[in-house]
Design a protein around this nucleic acid. Structure first.
Lengths: 340, 340
DNA sequence: ATGAAAGCGCTAACAA
DNA sequence: TTGTTAGCGCTTTCAT
């Protein structure tokens, strides 16, 4: 594995019998601007091709103090929603000649900080964060060095640019509609209330019940974190508390739903869903829900739109065109699987 | 958004009243090696902290001609298997102070080439590829510049370092066991035969049947690509061909399984699975399969092990310690859900 | 129409 | 024990 020294612009210049300047101009497609002779231009291009010349981004970044890279921090790459967003952002970056640097926080503020520091040291031109922090002091101070964009999650009351989904509205609509079918109870399993999406989802849930004329009982609302295991545990304790399955349950995330399903499967209760004796709905969508006989309604964020909006906002911040709007809230969609 | 000029080592040196060299030594923790006075060391460190000094990786990379970054090319970030591998590799890199650069090929050789070129321009120290190419000429030529490791997919007959799962063995065991339950037919839906995993999975399938004393009929084997839509279409045409559901079906990927399930759901045939009138098994595992009443057996790659092995191999190649072994084949696990 | 030289931030010889 | 200097590959004035 002998590492061949890469060919540099100096090599090309020498081989083509021109100066570095001329070679640089030609290779950056600005030959006409500098009225380089066509013959010279072709010669340089030819030499470059023959020698597989590829510019060194570090040299370029060093001198331009730009990296043409964007940092993305998300909790977990295997979470389908974040994976979708990451995929879309990666595609947009790739097609614009940028590189997306993805780092995971594992939903741990300490890990998140480490991850961000790594990205900042790599001089990313901007930072997109789905944060697990509750305060934005750190990001606020970072913003002096580079643009920071909040994605999917609002960090405390931060006024940094923000792109997220209006979870409350779709949740309220979904809950109201189900509740009006004539329920006398509706349980809610959620994650950490410190995270902004948790609050919005819960607010939507309570609003939906209210609109359906139902008063929320405190014992209906249960919280842990977004781990699948938490969904399992909450379902277990609910089942024990009641001595039966609940009439209806809303899980605030796909991971929690999975925990609930696992419990039901382990205890051979899935039939209650098939027969619609128990109503189950969830935030977050998953393609597989379409393929199941379980009648689980869901709320889907528009991840593609989220990514696109976020990307465009990021680009405009990088170019210091202070954009018309710096915060965008998108609608979520409801996927009905219990009806019709 | 006024971009503050970042503090450099020269700033630190000046503020601390020392030379750049001294500051550099101290900041790289090599003060003792150069016998820098403790007092000086502390002063430099203090100044650096006060000014939020963070070294510029581009300058460092330029001079060291290393980037402390590793490139990863996978077909799709939302594919659960690849996402798991990416997550694990990202974690390993992060904990070693490296940055993982992830790019997607969308299973298109042209896109893949573009993606790789982008990573190479960024001077990644090594490249890990789950390729959709059928020949390795390109990667073979790249290997003169940097180590290239094949992950999960064998590129043609390439002799480049390789880490993958022995799909054939587990598949054969699974198929044999199911077939011996007394089946007279067993269908197979696969993806592009040009991709090495496809061949291994099919070989395992045929071996399994053979061991069960069943002769494979050509019409049992069907191929398209790994799109979910292809699973749907293959199921549709099979259903029409037979005028009934098959006794047993093996899908060579999770995406194909999803297409099959979607077809069955659309045509209200899922009960056949619940009642075990139709046997369904798949390559690739998914947590949700544990939560369903569908009795779908699956084969799981050990993604964590795959990532770990690949990472270690990569590190040793970067350090030019030619490793003892340059190819690793790992076992897959069978998850039974139809038995017991 | 082309070239020489400086400088981006950093490390490593080599001096002192 | 610390400082001076050159050079990594590139772009960009400023000359010519």
């Amino acid at each position: 594995m002998e590492k061949r020294k890469r060919t540099t612009i100096a090599d090309i210049a020498k081989l083509a019998g021109v100066s570095k300047t001329t070679a640089s101009m030609v290779l950056n497609g600005r030959a006409s601007t500098f009225r380089i002779k066509e013959e010279t231009r072709l010669r340089v291009l030819e030499v470059a091709r023959e020698n597989h010349y590829s510019p060194n981004v570090h040299a370029k970044s060093l001198q331009a103090s730009r990296s043409d890279a964007i940092g993305l921090v998300i909790p977990d790459l295997t979470n389908f929603g974040f994976a979708s967003i990451a995929r879309e952002l990666e595609r947009l970056c790739r097609e614009s000649g940028l590189q997306l640097l993805i780092a995971c926080s594992e939903d741990d503020p300490a890990v998140e900080k480490k991850a961000v520091e790594g990205l900042v040291r790599r001089q990313v031109d901007a930072l997109i964060v789905a944060s697990s922090e509750t305060g934005d002091e750190y990001y606020q101070s970072l913003t002096k060095q580079l643009p920071v964009i909040q994605l999917d999650r609002h960090i405390g009351q931060s006024v940094l640019p923000l792109v997220l989904t209006d979870a409350a509205r779709a949740t309220a609509d979904l809950i109201e509609s189900i509740a009006k079918e004539g329920l006398s109870e509706f349980y809610y399993f959620g994650g950490q209330l410190e995270l902004s999406p948790s609050r919005h989802r819960l607010a939507g849930f309570e609003l939906g019940l209210k609109r359906a004329g139902i008063e929320t009982k405190p014992e209906w609302i249960r919280h842990r974190d977004y781990q699948t295991a938490s969904g399992y545990l909450m379902m277990q304790s609910l089942h024990q508390d009641l001595g039966r399955l609940p009439q209806a349950l809303f899980t605030a995330s796909y991971t929690l739903l999975e925990g609930v399903l696992r419990y039901l499967k382990d205890h051979e209760c899935l039939n209650a869903l098939v027969d619609k004796e128990m109503r189950l709905a969830t935030f977050d969508n998953h393609d597989l829900l379409d393929c199941l006989p379980l009648n689980i309604d869901s709320i889907a964020q528009n991840n593609q739109q989220l990514a696109k909006t976020c990307f465009e906002l990021t680009l405009s911040l990088i170019n210091e065109k202070s954009p018309a709007i710096s915060s965008v809230v998108l609608d979520a969609d409801i996927f009905w699987r219990s009806k019709k």
